[in-house]
Amino acid sequence: MEKARSSAVLFATLLLLWIFLNGSLAVDVLIVGTVVSVLIVLLFKSSLAAFSELKTTPQALRAALQYCVYFIKELIKANIRLARIVLSPSLPVKPGIVKVRTRLKSKMGRLLLANSITLTPGTLTVELKDEWLYVHWVSVESSDVEAATTSIVSGFEQYLEVMYG
């Protein structure tokens, strides 16, 4: 059951990608896309973890939307802060690598979290080991695990937790 659902999600993703690439809904485009998508799903159905973990409940979809909005806000903030650092003559950086913990269990959830951390203010994921993430921080506010977790991870985690569990 779980397998069928993840196959369906992968199939839909691939077909959508194909339609985007072609930019058309012509019959021949759809036929080729369907055939190739089915083939790929059949070939790779053993490694589908990423697609089976996403939940499709209404709460999860709402969280996904909120996550996107929050992410864009953080991305813009990150760039403005970085621009300020780069433009100031004294280059006010206080870098360091801190350790944070995530409550997320799924692989895809952790991947998205790591990516989000990289694109948000002053942080870059360097290493991911089980539940621990090692994050390079341009201006370290605290090297304590708990404090760093609250300040770096929590913002995204609250949404990703609902999306992936």
């Binding site: 760039n79 950086v93 990289t118 390079h136």
Partner: peptide, 24 residues
């Protein structure tokens, strides 16, 4: 700004940060 960060930042990790965020 990304290019500037790439040149001005003091070490590799800071440079990667500057590059990745601004280019995205």
């Amino acid at each position: 700004f990304g290019g500037l960060g790439l040149v001005r930042m003091p070490d590799l990790f800071n440079r990667i940060q500057a590059g990745a965020k601004t280019t995205t």
